[in-house]
């Protein structure tokens, strides 16, 4: 790792200023998935945090997940299962950090969550909610750059405008790393499972995703489609190249892609609605 890069890594992972996840999340992660006692314990832990409960319910009813009419935490446990509630707790905590930072990125992330969920369902994949969560969180590295490297972020944006580059190229030029790698560092720091950290770290280079290539491919394609749609604002003006490995892993074809675009566009109306309501809060 170059000097600049390791210095930056230190700055970014400096725990004094790094956004931390509520301790509730760590408690939840230490509980096992299926034991009945865990379920009861988990409902108790989550319900004890009013703010977190409210956020979880709001996100459960957001278009990224689309569970309608989930109104209590114990309801959510029964209807959605323990793993989904864990995912929700995690993403709602991370989003609390993100919301304040940038509306455009928040809309982009919600949309990629929605798209990833729809792609996963269409392909009949397992763990669709996990994949939606990975989609929601995939650009978390950008939030961290904005939070921690304010000056560098400005230079990156300038470079993107001046030389019509992709964000990731400008990031590499200015800070010698990129938002995907930073997202990866952060996921390690937060002890996120591989099925989340790989899509976050490798959504711009799917081949590097060794254990969860399928999930990473879904997030990559979701990101491409949302950028093609022009919805939200990720910071990039250009659609990235669809990586062959992702296309082949998901065995996509023209017909499926066309159907996905229709389904995703239909759902994006709800995302807009959701984000307008949130801004009104």
């Amino acid at each position: 790792m170059t000097d600049k890069r390791s210095k930056l890594k230190k700055i970014i992972l400096d725990t004094k200023t790094l956004p931390t996840l509520p301790s509730v999340i760590h408690k939840l992660n230490s509980l096992s998935d299926n034991e009945r006692s865990s379920v009861r314990e988990m409902a108790r832990i989550v319900s004890s945090d009013q703010v977190l409960s409210a956020r979880i319910l709001r996100l459960a009813n957001s278009p990224s997940y689309g569970f309608h009419k989930v109104s209590t935490i114990s309801n959510a446990m029964i209807l959605l299962g323990v793993n989904v509630v864990k995912s929700l707790a995690l993403s709602s905590s991370i989003f609390a950090i993100m919301e304040k930072e940038s509306v455009g990125l928040w809309e982009h992330s919600l949309a990629v969550g929605v798209a990833a969920n729809l792609i996963a369902r269409k392909l009949g994949l397992q763990e669709c909610e996990e994949i939606a969560t990975a989609g929601l969180l995939h650009d978390i590295g950008k939030v961290i750059i904005a939070l921690k490297c304010n000056e560098a972020e400005k230079s990156i944006l300038n470079l993107v405008n001046e030389r019509q580059m992709y964000c990731i190229e400008a990031e590499r030029e200015i800070i010698d790393t990129d938002h995907a790698e930073i997202g990866g560092w952060l996921s390690k720091n937060w002890f996120l499972p591989d099925k989340l950290s790989e899509p976050i770290a490798f959504h711009h280079n799917v081949a590097q995703s060794v254990h969860h290539c399928l999930k990473t491919s879904v997030v990559h394609i979701a990101d491409v489609i949302v950028k093609a749609s022009g919805f939200g604002c990720s910071g990039d003006c250009f659609v990235p190249q669809i990586e062959d490995i992702a296309w082949n892993t998901l065995q996509l074809n023209e017909k499926m892609l066309a159907e996905l675009v229709d389904e995703i566009e239909d759902k994006l109306i709800e995302v807009k609605n959701f984000s307008l309501e949130m801004m009104g809060d």
Binding site: K227, A228, G230, I242
Partner: peptide, 26 residues
């Protein structure tokens, strides 16, 4: 026009060109 602008860097890739056509029709 905005759609074309977003695809300007990747039209050489057949899958991207396909996505462009789909979005245009949409």
């Amino acid at each position: 026009c905005a759609l074309d602008g977003r695809f300007i860097k990747t039209m050489h890739n057949p899958q991207n060109a396909m996505l462009h056509t789909i979005y245009k029709a949409y």
